[in-house]
Design a protein around this nucleic acid. Structure first.
Length: 341
DNA sequence: AAAAAGAGCAACCGCGGCATC
DNA sequence: AGATGCCGCGGTTGCTCTTTT
């Protein structure tokens, strides 16, 4: 049995909203809210519209503090870097851009930004423009980088890779030497679980082992490569479901090499200026991670507890983050891809 | 000046997830 | 446990405006 339609399409108005309809909807929501039920709202508000249409109109247009108009260079950077990390998760991307809606960003990407990036892929600019930033991803002069070989059996079914979708696969496949099944590079980023996210230094007593758990992304994978260990464990725990992967030193080195190739020629800084507090640029994070030495055990899983006891510089920095930042702001700091010049 | 093509964007559609019954 | 209903998301459509021929 199919889903019942949310409204009778023959009895509701469709198409562009009139100023009068906008006013009715705005007035009603400002007075009463949506009452937790969009379906019944149009009747109460005196609108001959589908509830879904009302919701869309409110969220994408009438809601206070909605920003319309041109996107800034900074916004371009954020969109691009997030797209590179998580693909077309427009709502997540929108959450990082105040006043922008997912629809807005989606349209902007489809109509402008993608073209900007595509056109830049044939140029060899190394400036700090957003177009230049895209170059490492879309450089047609593909290097023949050997993809790290990781036994697929070690990747648990819970691990998630946003790049498996066809729409993004075609874009990502243009990355230098990147094969489409790059799940093995980004094994644990889970956009379905972006909320519970904290950063704490849980220093390990194990020698020569690096353990990173949580929703690690580009940053941590790359950072871990900075100090090759005998055993590098990546794991992710989402709602009690755990996925785990272990990479040998050689594999880590291959990944590192691979990412270096991808980011070759890029001298910019995705984060410079975007974060206006603790983390100002990837350099801090890089130091933070590498400062933990050969025995690092960093929990990014959110619910765990721990105390910093790595090197003084790294542990204090991490502790500051853990103590002073909410989960959501930490997410902003850590879920973006970072690229080292 | 007019027609055609392209670009931009608001709105729609259908599906998956989740809560509730 | 299964059915139902709502919300939110991502993909797509189609209208309008702008640019090109």
């Amino acid at each position: 049995m199919g889903r019942a339609p949310c409204c009778d399409k023959t009895k509701v108005k469709r198409g562009p909203w009139s100023p009068e309809e906008d006013a009715k909807l705005r007035d009603y929501i400002e007075k009463y809210g949506n009452g937790g039920n969009w379906i019944s709202l149009p009747l109460k508000a005196g609108l001959r519209r589908c509830g879904k249409s009302c919701r869309l109109r409110w969220l994408n247009y009438l809601r206070p503090n909605i920003k319309h108009g041109d996107f800034s260079e900074e916004e371009d950077r954020i969109i691009f870097s997030l797209f590179a990390a998580i693909g077309s998760r427009w709502s997540i991307i929108a959450a990082h851009l105040q006043g922008r809606t997912d629809n807005d960003i989606k349209n902007y990407w489809n109509t402008k930004l993608r073209k900007k990036i595509m056109s830049s892929s044939s140029s060899s600019s190394s400036s700090h423009s957003s177009a230049a930033m895209a170059t490492p991803f879309l450089n047609p002069n593909s290097h023949d980088v050997k993809r790290p070989i990781i036994p697929s059996a070690t990747i648990a079914p819970f691990s998630y890779n946003p790049y498996v979708e066809n729409s993004t696969r075609s874009l990502i496949s243009n990355i230098n030497g990147f094969e489409a099944d790059d799940q093995q590079i980004f094994p644990f980023f889970n956009p379905n679980y972006p909320h519970e996210f904290s950063l704490e230094d849980m220093s390990s007593s194990n020698n020569n082992n690096n353990n990173i758990s949580g929703t690690s992304g580009f940053l941590l994978n790359h950072s871990m490569c900075d100090h090759y260990s005998n055993h590098n464990n990546f794991s992710s725990e989402v709602n009690g479901k755990r996925s785990e992967i272990m990479m040998e030193q050689e594999e880590m080195m291959m990944i590192d090499h691979h990412i270096d190739q991808m980011t070759e020629g890029y001298n910019g800084d995705f984060t410079q200026g975007y974060y206006n507090n603790d983390i100002n640029g990837h350099g801090d994070l890089k130091r933070m991670i590498s400062g933990t030495g050969t025995n690092s055990n960093i929990n990014m899983g959110g619910s765990g507890s721990g105390s910093g006891s790595g090197t003084a510089s790294s542990s204090s920095f991490i502790s500051n983050l853990a103590e002073n930042k909410t989960s959501s702001s930490l997410l902003q700091h850590t879920c973006l891809p970072y690229f080292y010049s």
